[in-house]
Design a binder for these strands. Structure first.
Lengths: 206, 206
DNA sequence: TACTATTGACTGATCAATCAAACAATCGAT
DNA sequence: ATCGATTGTTTGATTGATCAGTCAATAGTA
């Protein structure tokens, strides 16, 4: 049973996580001060943070747990493996780009990537639970489609990278680097074109 | 005429820039201390840095001037525009990936990208002098090839992104994130496959 | 009353930047 | 050549600011 007190306590905790996420995404983990976090979280004292979290790094851990990017495609890999080619690729592309539609997930990706930049250890762990697993799924799917003759034979890992590259670039430039201004390219159009090029480019030779 | 004194002075300056580049690439600009820089540069006092540079940010400026990524393709745009399709794309891809063969340029890209993460202002400037200009060149080339019937009609900016994406992803994961370990993919093979897919995928419909 | 939540003052550490003094090279005058 | 003056280089001690984390006191709730 959760008492009223535990509820409020949980809300406060969440409040602080969100404040930290906002500040970390803007200024980076190192430059964000506890005072910044307290202000963004709407609490009056930086000291209170330490009632809920062990230290600054613990805040980062909490952000990962709360907003670590999920990926819909990954949730049902067997289903994904059965989809026809164009549908699978389009769905893959769209869910990849839709990841950052939730600003909080977008912000958390920003924070985690920035952290990975300075910390190879962390980068490795992050890559393994995130992108690498997803790309492996895609590589497996492509290998399957090569086996049944829908696609021409090639190294499926390289092929997967060729398909995923433009998606990563889009996410990176738009959401992470906020470079939306002059290269206003529709996400849907990008995915459609990327799928079209890839499917034609990988169709079996005749 | 450069006196012996000016020579030594210039060497010291360079020494400090290299030390700073090393430390900034490893720990990030904010976390790197002047003491770190002095040690990496092989000088005995952090105070000396201020004899050669106005402040810490000035060190970053010096790194940009010294190691800001050049791009061979950009040097002779007219020549590039005249190349046949596969050759142009292959050359473009290889020079893109070769950028980071020089560890110092690789390190500087690391430093600048990490900085751009925390500073939208800086990100915009960096993007404009670097990637955006290169991608625009590619988009122009593709538009040209669409006009003469070598490629099918499409938005050249999106097409350019589809081609560049895998290259950026490769550079990012390999050199910037140091994720070389388990996905050992040859750069040449990646470029070749990316070109092949793109050329077939964008060839005119029959 | 007993317990938890909250505050803000405080501490100790770190670090960018300054500075005065020591040191070294260069050069002109003798 | 030698000397001293001048200029540029290097050092390490110091300063002042910032900030993560602590703590004792206070407010609020069951």
């Amino acid at each position: 049973m959760t008492t009223r007190r535990e509820q409020i306590s949980e809300e406060r905790r969440q409040q602080i996580i969100d404040g930290a996420l906002k500040v970390f995404a803007e200024k980076g983990f190192v430059q964000a001060t506890n005072k910044d976090v307290a202000e963004a979280a709407g609490i009056n004292s930086p000291g209170l943070i330490y009632h809920y979290f062990a230290d600054k790094a613990d805040l980062l851990r909490a952000i990962i747990e709360r907003y670590g990017p999920p990926m819909q495609v990954l949730a049902r890999p067997e289903e994904f493996m059965q989809l026809p080619l164009e549908e699978a690729l389009t769905q893959f592309g769209l869910s990849y780009l839709r990841l950052t539609d939730d600003p909080k997930i977008g912000a958390s990706i920003r924070v985690l990537m920035a952290e990975a930049f300075h910390n190879p250890e962390f980068a490795k762990i992050l890559a393994e639970v995130g992108p690498l697993r997803v790309w492996q799924l895609l590589a497996d799917y492509l290998a399957h489609k090569m086996d049944d003759g829908t696609l021409r034979r090639a190294d499926p890992r390289i092929a997967a990278r060729c398909f995923v590259g433009p998606l990563v670039l889009e996410m990176l430039s738009r959401k992470i680097f906020s470079l939306a201004y002059d290269m206003s390219v529709d996400a849907g159009a990008l995915v459609a074109m990327n799928v079209a090029i890839f499917v034609r480019g990988m169709s079996p030779e005749r």
